[in-house]
Structure formats: C-alpha cells, structure tokens
Design a protein around this nucleic acid. Structure first.
Lengths: 147, 147
DNA sequence: TAGTTATATAACCTAAAGGTAATATACATC
DNA sequence: GATGTATATTACCTTTAGGTTATATAACTA
C-alpha cells in the first residue's frame, strides 16, 4: 500500500509479464539451474537470458548461488506472496459470478460510506442515468508521481 | 499453458505492473466511474489516463458502459482469476518457510523424474559439483517468438 | 601458465511504453 | 444550429525493454 510495496509490486508484476521469464520460473520450480541450462530451451542467446535473469533477480524472484564457474539460480517466491495478496483483494469480484457485479458494488457501497474513498469522488448508483449533482466537483490536482 | 492463455497472462501481468493502473482498478472496485472521475486523483492528463484505460481494457480488466457522453468503466476481474491460478502453482514455495527450500526441491525432484521437462534439459542434484555430460548438447536454435 | 568453460558486460539497434499538447468527435442543451 | 461537456485520437517526444554481436572476466583443467 505504501510506496515501497507499490514499487515491489511494479517489479514483480512486470517480471511476471514476460513468457520467457515465467518459463524460467517454472523451470526453477523443479530445482536450481545454471544459466546454460536455462538458456537451452529457448531460441534466444545467453546474454538475452542473462538479462531476463537480472530482471527476475531485481524483483527478488530468484537468487544466485555459486558452484565453480557456474552461478546456479534458485527460485525465491516470496514476492509472489505479495502479488497474491494484492490479487486476493479482488477475489470476490471474480468468484462471485453467482451475484451480479452490480449487487456486489451496491453491497460494498453500503459498507463504505466515505470510509475508504478519501478523495471526494462520488459514485452514482449503477444503472442510474442521471448525472445531476455531478457538476462543479473540485479538481484538486495533486503533484508528483502516482501513489 | 497454451499460447492463448500465455498471451492473456502477459497482458494481465503487464497491466497490473503499473501503479496508476492498479489505483484505477482499486477505484473501480468501489463502483463504476467516468473517465473524468478516474483522472481526478492523478497528476496526469486525461489522454494519459485514457491510454491506461485502453491497456486495462485490452487485458479485459475493465469494460465500458455508456451514459450520454460519459463512458463509465467498470471492473471486470476475471483475468485476475487466471493470474491468481498461475501464482497458486508457486504457493508452496512462499508458504513453506518452515521447510528449507532445498527440501522442497528435493521432494519435487523425487516426484518428477523427467515427467514435466520435455525439452531435454537435465537437472543436477543440488550441491553436486560435477558438470560432466554437459558437453555438446545440440543447440537446435529455433525461430520466432518465445513459446 | 595456457587453454577451456561459464557467465557477465558493453555497445548497439528497434520497438513499445508512458507521457505531452492539440484537435476531433459525440452527445446534450439552449 | 451553436455551444458546452466528456472522451477519443493524433502527432510527437523520451525512456525503457528486449534482443543482437562482440568481448571481458572468473574459475577450473591440463
């Protein structure tokens, strides 16, 4: 929620957004592997894989050990826990298909009552066509980087 | 696991890798919102937010409805379910902190025995120092995009 | 110590991502 | 039909991502 965890989420999700990197993680799930072993399945040069490994490493998803000239990587899945936590907050939205989304929203709205929504943005009832009362909300443009 | 779901995961994780987009999703979790309402909290222009919305839309994470000139967005969390599923496969790796990771890996290796690893990459027992038998594996450089 | 193997790094290229300002489009209203 | 409001689109810019080839470094081996 704070800036730090937001940055970590950035790095984690970005690392997971590439199929090559996900495949590398899958490979490492079955045991640590050298760079050469990680290169082997891909139609890609070793430096390219080394770059992917660096991305995964900066995201904390893998670590290196040493074994002579080899630098085997191993899986470090903890950042996934944080990504998972973030996703969990939305679980009700994908699991509750038996409820219409509107109902869920209405329900949340009941619990909310200006608790979480600190910025003064107002919701209209879903399905309501009327925009009355929407005019002249303050803009309050903020500065700096998002979140 | 197939190409399609891999592409969807790419799009989903990539969409989630940006803090502005995650904030937009958080906002939409409390009810649908117009573009103007989504712009309001950010130090960013409307076209920039519209671009973010397009990214979220292509990932299937939001949809648009219509209300006069307004085009309110609503949360569509289903793609998160798939991302969640992918992460779940690694849950043991971040939850099993009471076991040393090595133990988990060893355990998996017992169950595995060349079941999943179809490409001929070989594992060495962790801690094994010998690299013999690694020479002259064919490279079989293939074409096209990964996976 | 010369050679070999494993990996990292550098320099470079191209395309995509994330912004901007300016402008076009669609709908509502007077 | 002119005007206002909400959103989309266009043209542009800068930075980053993902790849390449060539080369450097580090550790083992003869």
């Amino acid at each position: 929620m704070n800036r730090l965890s937001s940055d970590r989420l950035d790095a984690t999700f970005a690392a997971l957004a590439d199929p090559t990197r996900r495949a590398i993680l899958a490979r490492l799930a079955s045991g640590e592997a050298s760079v050469a072993e990680l290169v082997e399945p891909f139609a890609m040069t070793q430096p390219a894989i080394s770059k992917h490994l660096k991305v995964l490493e900066r995201a904390g998803l893998i670590s290196r050990t040493q074994d002579a000239q080899r630098r085997p990587r191993r899986l470090e899945a903890k950042p996934m826990a944080e990504a998972n936590e973030w996703l969990e907050k939305y679980r009700q939205f994908w699991e509750g298909s038996f409820l219409r989304l509107d109902d869920l929203l209405d329900e949340m709205k009941g619990l909310e009552t200006k608790g979480t929504n600190t910025r003064g943005a107002r919701e209209r009832a879903p399905g309501s066509k009327l925009g009355a009362g929407n005019k002249k909300r303050g803009r309050a443009r903020s500065q700096g980087k998002t979140q």
